[in-house]
């Protein structure tokens, strides 16, 4: 941390819209990400939550961790429920049934609820252009059900349904590029974020809220339980995900890409993978293959940024 930025955390609101007493695992990066996102979102919001870790650890009858209106119905339909709420309010405001309080609609889900089972409902809602922010808290597997692989699980990671073994390197497919799918819907705002960069995260959430129409933000959320790392390292590991280029931090405003926290020289991915049991089985040659692809993907992202005519800021939150 550089001295000039060290006191910046104190400028962030102390208001917690997400009460303590939630039942997330010790050191949960997702709980941290949710907490920070909702500092940016504030209270004038209606939250739609998919089934998943966040839903489970914030809601258990007769309690709730939420200090904002919150609804959970099912797993795969979050964007559709948000569509219904947004449309209902639009109609009722127009008809004078309720006042226009400029309330935001925010849908939240995990990677499974977004990128696997919820993809259709999300695609539909983005295509129809509902005015809402969708945040995917991406912990890269079905953690709530016991660490099964999803299409967001990174290549080579061992999970309970992509276990590493004599005949298996673990997850056999490259992480699905959901932000690109969101971009392909021609929506006004798409971004990636990571709670290890809280100001970047909060700025993006605010931009997503203000966008007119659908916005999609994917927030990498370290999962000590599923990734096999000590809870105290959640924030460090998130930082390394960005610094190694494994999970780059960028945004796409009206189709224009920009890297928001850029690293001219990426750290080797082993700095990131070596801290996590899910990658422990990977042999050097396999890690080298992953390394090359990570660099290539990062270069592709930089090209998109250059083509968009935006220059990224270098290491803004270092």
């Amino acid at each position: 941390m550089e001295n000039c930025t060290i006191y910046v955390p104190r400028l962030i609101t102390k208001k917690e819209n997400f009460a303590p007493g939630h039942r997330a695992c010790i050191g949960c990066g997702e709980a941290l990400a949710v907490r920070l996102a909702f500092k940016a979102i504030g209270q004038n919001v209606i939250v739609v939550n998919a089934t998943g870790c966040v839903e489970i650890f914030t809601s258990q009858l007769p309690y709730t961790s939420w200090r904002v209106p919150w609804i959970h119905t099912l797993f795969e339909n979050t964007a559709a429920v948000a569509s219904g709420i947004e449309s209902a309010r639009k109609a009722m405001i127009r008809k004078g049934i309720i006042q226009d309080t400029k309330t935001k609609i925010v849908a939240i889900a995990g990677d499974g609820g977004t990128i696997d089972i919820g993809l259709q409902a999300l695609s539909g809602a983005m295509e129809r252009g509902h005015d809402f922010l969708y945040i995917c808290f991406d912990n890269e597997a079905y953690m709530n059900t016991g660490i099964q692989r999803s299409s967001a699980t990174p290549f080579g990671a061992s999970t309970t349904t992509s276990p590493a073994g004599k005949e298996s390197i673990g997850q056999f497919a490259w992480k699905k590029d959901m932000p690109a799918i969101a971009v392909a819907h021609n929506i006004p705002y798409v971004a990636t974020a990571n709670p290890s960069y809280p100001f970047d995260l909060m700025a993006k959430v605010k931009k997503g809220l203000e966008a007119k129409g659908p916005a999609y933000i994917q927030i990498l959320s370290a999962c000590p339980t599923g990734w096999g790392c000590p809870g105290e390292l959640s924030v460090k590991i998130g930082r390394l995900a960005a610094k190694t280029g494994v999970f780059p931090l960028y945004e796409v405003e009206n189709g224009k890409y920009s890297i928001t926290v850029d690293f001219p020289k990426l750290l080797p991915i082993t700095e990131y993978t070596s801290l996590q049991k899910r990658f422990r089985h990977l042999q050097p040659e396999m890690l080298e293959q992953i390394q090359q692809k990570v660099v290539r993907k990062y270069e592709e992202l930089k090209e998109k940024t250059e083509m968009s005519g935006c220059c990224g800021q270098t290491g803004t939150e270092e």
Binding site: S83, G84, I85, A88
Partner: peptide
Amino acid sequence: SACMGSAAAGA
């Protein structure tokens, strides 16, 4: 699902 959201919003 949209109907559930809509009804919960009071419409």
